[in-house]
Amino acid sequence: MFFDTGKEREIDRIFDAHKTVVESGINSAISACGGKKTLDREIDLSRKEDLYRFFSYLHNVINDVIEWVQAVKNHLNKELRYHKESDIYEMALIASNTNFDLKEETNLDYSHEKGKATVEDLLKSKVSENIPQATIDALCEKYGIQDPPKD
């Protein structure tokens, strides 16, 4: 496994070690029936035909994954709803009530007045320095807050 040239070059030892791990994983994978799961037989990545067989398999797996990701992306693009930035902050205010203790109930009650109070508190804090002025203006308009802070 480890060639004497690798004795002087760490990159060669690392390559050999990685190749051995990949080869072991492929050769030890079995199907539910007990047969070879991945490539139907043991492979030796030092043999040209096995290396070609492995890269062909890898090529097919990668193409299948790309097709799957594309299908998911297309599906999500049809299903996604996009929100204005001020609505995102309102949804974040609601989501901030999430109780991550799964043994307890989460109260997601929300009111315009509670949202307004939260935004007013936010605008008084240093956190508002990181919020774009257009978003602050939109939140102030949404909640009827007069004289919003300016840059």
Rank of each mutant, 00 (worst) to 15 (best):
E42C: 06
L102H: 11
D109G: 08
L76N: 14
K114M: 05
T118Y: 07
H18A: 10
R9V: 13
W68I: 08
D44I: 00
I14V: 15
K48W: 00
L102S: 11
C140S: 15
G34R: 08
I145K: 06
H59L: 07
E42V: 08
S24A: 14
I131F: 04
L93Q: 10
H112V: 08
S28C: 11
D101M: 05
P132F: 02
G35I: 02
S128Q: 10
Y57R: 08
S24M: 11
D101E: 13
L123A: 01
I94A: 15
L39C: 04
H18T: 09
T118G: 00
N27S: 06
K150W: 00
I136D: 01
D40W: 07
E85H: 07
I131V: 14
D64Q: 13
L51I: 00
L80I: 11
F2Q: 13
K36E: 05
V69G: 02
S56P: 00
A95G: 04
V61G: 01
E141M: 05
K48E: 08
Y82S: 10
C140K: 04
D16N: 08
I14F: 04
T5V: 06
Q146I: 05
G34P: 07
S31H: 06
T20G: 11
F2D: 11
H75G: 08
K7F: 07
G144P: 03
G35N: 15
N107Q: 03
S96P: 00
L76H: 10
G35P: 00
R41D: 06
I66R: 11
S28V: 06
E90F: 00
I14P: 00
E129T: 09
L45N: 03
T118I: 09
D101T: 06
K36Q: 13
D87C: 03
V69L: 14
A138R: 07
E85M: 12
H83R: 10
L39M: 15
K36R: 15
K114F: 04
T118N: 08
S125V: 03
K19V: 10
E8C: 08
N77D: 14
Y57E: 06
T20S: 15
L93G: 04
Q146C: 03
L108K: 06
I62R: 14
E85C: 05
L51F: 10
F55N: 13
T38R: 09
V21I: 14
E120A: 05
I88G: 01
V21A: 15
E113F: 06
